[in-house]
Amino acid sequence: MVAAAKPIHDHEHDHEHDHARERRMAWAKTAILIGLGLYFAYNIISGNLSNYINLRFGWLSYVAAALFFLLGGFSAYTLLRSRGEHAHDHEHGDHLHSAPSWGMIAVVAAPLVLGTLVPSRPLGAEAVGGIALNAAASQVSTGSVTMFTINPENRNVLDWLRVFNQTDDYGTLNNQPVDIIGFVYREPDFGADQFMTARFTISCCVADANAIGLPVVWADTASLPQGEWVHVRGTMQEGEFRGEPTALVHANSVEIIEAPQNPYLYP
């Protein structure tokens, strides 16, 4: 309603001026819609989508890309057809819209600008606010007893923490083989030969990301750069970490690797 409630001007000149401004805004909106469609398509094709959301819901991004192209394409078509005419954005029923403004257009362009200018990277060691050595602390359902049925060498960091949650006696895990990947995370109070192999878990998107990690004992820890992705092989041994009884990975090998295509674990 507001969108159409343009003040009636006496001067034809003002009217022309308003009209041109309106068309510029409509073109800007069209460009943003198509740009957002391209941005979604790019994320899908490049695989960057996995830096942001749980791929279980990846199909929603296809929907979004299609709808952005539909709205943008329609908007462009309408503008091209009405060239030269005074095709006013006419009253749409009783819908309440605030008058379009450049500020509003700029705000909606923000994700496009940030998405294009800032290189896409998954959350890493820098984003760890607090790290959980406990799967329960990360909104993870721990109810499944099935964790024990996964072969130890096939367990990822999250599976291991679930096993920890179901274990009363860490001694029962002694000598089980460990084969995990994650990024290196260290804090000053860790032992000189200790680091954590950390992962982020996400349920829906990175907004609900939680850092989890397994403590690792490795003599050459000092040589590992914070945040670097590593492949850790070793055995589980009962012990203490930061003063708490737990089990630690005693590593036989720690190998620096490329970040995996899918950086997060989905609980």
């Binding site: 979604f40 994320n43 989508l49 830096n51 942001y52 959301i53 991004s61 979004a64 994700p111 940030l114 998405g115 896409s120 990277r121 998954p122 959350l123 984003a127 998107c205 990175v206 907004a207 990301a209």
Partner: peptide, 8 residues
């Protein structure tokens, strides 16, 4: 990353 995660 967090902002675009919510937006996407």
């Amino acid at each position: 990353t967090r902002f675009l995660g919510i937006f996407l």
